[in-house]
Structures are given as C-alpha cells and as structure tokens.
Amino acid sequence: MRTAVAEERDRRGDGRPEQSRPRDRTGRPLPHGTTGVPLTEEHEPATVEEALLLGVALWNDERLFEAHECLEHVWHAAPDADRDLWQGVIQVAVAGVHLQRDNLEGAVATFGKARRRLRRYPDVHRGIDVEQLVVFCEGAAAALEDAGAVIEVGFPEFPAMDDGPWFTPDPALLEPPGTPTPVPDGPAWRRRPRGTPTDPPEAGSR
C-alpha cells in the first residue's frame, strides 16, 4: 500500500512502464543518469528480522524513506494484534520523509495518524519505547503547527529498549521467535483465504 511516498514510474508511449528512475534519499524520482546526488538504495532482506534490523539502522542514519520500505516487511508479516504498532512506527518514518521534503501538511497529518495508532499499545511493546514515540509525535506536530512552517523538531533515533526491537508472528509470544521469519509476499490481510474476516488499514492511512 503506497500513499505520499508512492512509487512513480515513467511510461512509454504505449503505456508500458519505463525503467525506474533513480531516487534521492527522500524517495523523489530523479532524471535518468543523475550523478553527484546521494541516492536511495534498494534493500532485499531475506527475513523479517533482517528487515527490522536494517530498518532501524537506516532510521538512525536518517534515511527514512529506505527505513520505511524495510519496515513494511515487518508490518506485512505482523499478526493482527501488532499490525497497528508497526504501521504506527512506519508512519513516524513517513512523517520524517515529509519533513525532509518540506511538506508541512503531510508531516503534521502523518504524525497525528501515527500517534493515534501507537497509543493503543503499552508504553513498551516488542522492545520499542512506544511512549517515547507518542510523545515525540505530539510534540513535533504541535511545534510544526505553531510555527506554520517546517522547522527542526529533533527527529529521534529509533526508540529501542535494551531487549529490542523484536518481531513475533505470534502475539502470545513474549520473546523473539527461535527461528527466522521469511519475508512474506504481501500483507497478511491479502494472504487470507477468501471469506476470512479482515481489518485492512484505511485508505490513505500511510
């Protein structure tokens, strides 16, 4: 599911997709052959655990567009009980992308969406300091709205606790799984058999 950071493809005259253009670190497409600009890199983690560790490292390097792409693998593999947790974490990264793109309205709106999702969880969950993220979202959105412009809000490093972050496909498990979880082909709600009740994220929620 893609929204503000959606992938854009050039099209040939017959409508077929052209080769993807390079992107800057905020995910903006650049002309073919662009040089001298730090580019977004493609990442292909083999397991959800690898995707999570890579997403955290990219987040801490303020490569937030790439971080959100890696963390989507975690969200897609998450059980229903943790889906809003990981989507909320991703939305914080996406709000950071909006800041990097000087998009005030997008940043404020996405911080609000992230806060609403994350507040549904305990202060610490899956080795993540959820309370820290909620407080940051609230403070950043308020500061941006007061300023009426994109300002420095002190984007934090990933709020990992000593035992985390970690992923589990089983919400009852109180520690990381003993075996790696393969990266899924798509979100869990798209892989359910027909007729299974679902609760997909709202349109445009990311």
Rank of each mutant, 00 (worst) to 15 (best):
L85S: 07
L64A: 02
V92I: 07
D82E: 10
N103H: 15
V97C: 07
R116I: 00
H76Q: 10
F65Q: 06
L64W: 07
L85N: 09
V94S: 06
V97G: 03
A93M: 02
L99Y: 04
N103K: 08
H68A: 13
G88I: 06
L64D: 08
A95P: 11
F111S: 07
G106T: 09
A95V: 11
H68D: 05
V74I: 04
D80Q: 12
L64K: 00
V74N: 03
T110Q: 15
W75V: 07
A107H: 04
A107E: 05
F65I: 12
R115V: 00
V92D: 03
R115N: 08
H98E: 11
Q91I: 01
K113P: 02
Q100D: 13
D102C: 00
L104G: 04
C70E: 15
L85A: 06
D82P: 13
Q100G: 15
L99T: 01
F111E: 06
Q91H: 10
G96Y: 03
A81F: 06
A78H: 00
I90P: 06
E69R: 15
E72V: 09
I90Y: 01
V89R: 00
L99K: 08
L71A: 13
Q87R: 13
L99Q: 08
D84P: 02
V108M: 09
H76R: 05
R101V: 01
E105M: 12
D84E: 09
Q87M: 13
A114T: 03
F65N: 12
W86V: 04
V74W: 06
A81Q: 10
Q91R: 11
A81Y: 00
A67G: 09
D80G: 10
V92S: 03
A107R: 03
E72I: 06
D84M: 01
A67M: 02
L71W: 11
V94G: 02
G106F: 03
G88C: 12
A77I: 12
E69G: 06
L99R: 11
H76E: 11
T110C: 14
G96S: 12
D82M: 04
L64T: 06
A93E: 04
D82R: 09
D102P: 01
H76A: 14
A78S: 10
Q91D: 14
Q91V: 04
G112E: 13
Q87C: 03
E69N: 14
A93T: 02
H98G: 13
F65K: 07
C70Q: 12
Q100R: 15
A95C: 10
R63P: 03
D84K: 05
V89F: 05
A114Q: 02
V97T: 14
R116C: 01
V97D: 00
G112A: 15
G112D: 14
E105P: 00
I90R: 14
Q91F: 02
V108D: 11
A109K: 14
A114L: 04
